[in-house]
Amino acid sequence: MQLALTAIDDDPAVAPAGAARAPSSFDEVYGEHFDFVWRSARRLGVPESALDDCVQDVFIVVHRRLGDFEGRSSVRTWLFGILRRVVRDHRATARDRATSHDDAALSRLVDTHTEAPDESAARAEAARVLNALLETLDDDKREAFVLSELEQFSAPEIAEATGVNVNTVYARVRAAKHELEQALARLRHNRAWSQRCAK
């Protein structure tokens, strides 16, 4: 789907907040931050089938707006601001994703039987489990948690990237952790039951 990227372009929230060291070129931004954008898109719930589109849309906007980059904060904060807009737009157009923050992804996980033969597989599996857990959060808490816990952004950085004040960021991260703990507990509970039934 081709998004109305111009709309995102024109949103002041996406206007580059600048960086202490402005990136010199599009190639540089792409090379240094593609991974961040990619994994963040995944963590914000972009399905595999839309991942390429979504990430490309982010960098199209980056390409258009790079010239405006002025140098007040980090490139990643700016990028995430663009990404969250792109992700939300994608989601708005994806009719099938009406059931945000529910346990569907979790229940699918329970039935999955996997083992981890090596470390990288274990990490991939952990990412999969965590992403399923993240599905139980709403967008605001999800963004705050991803930036805080997975990307280790500071609260002021998260505040800037998501356009809210720092207190709200703390509250969201706290609430996200609480909800994820509960979701994890449900996952364990379901696991225990499916194990019992398998016997």
């Binding site: 039987h113 599996e125 489990v129």
Partner: peptide, 25 residues
Amino acid sequence: ASVATTGALLGKLAGGALVLALASV
């Protein structure tokens, strides 16, 4: 992408249990 990374990886994993994956996590 998913086939190359997660898909193939997880596909290869079929047979055990999630709980084992979590343990090795």
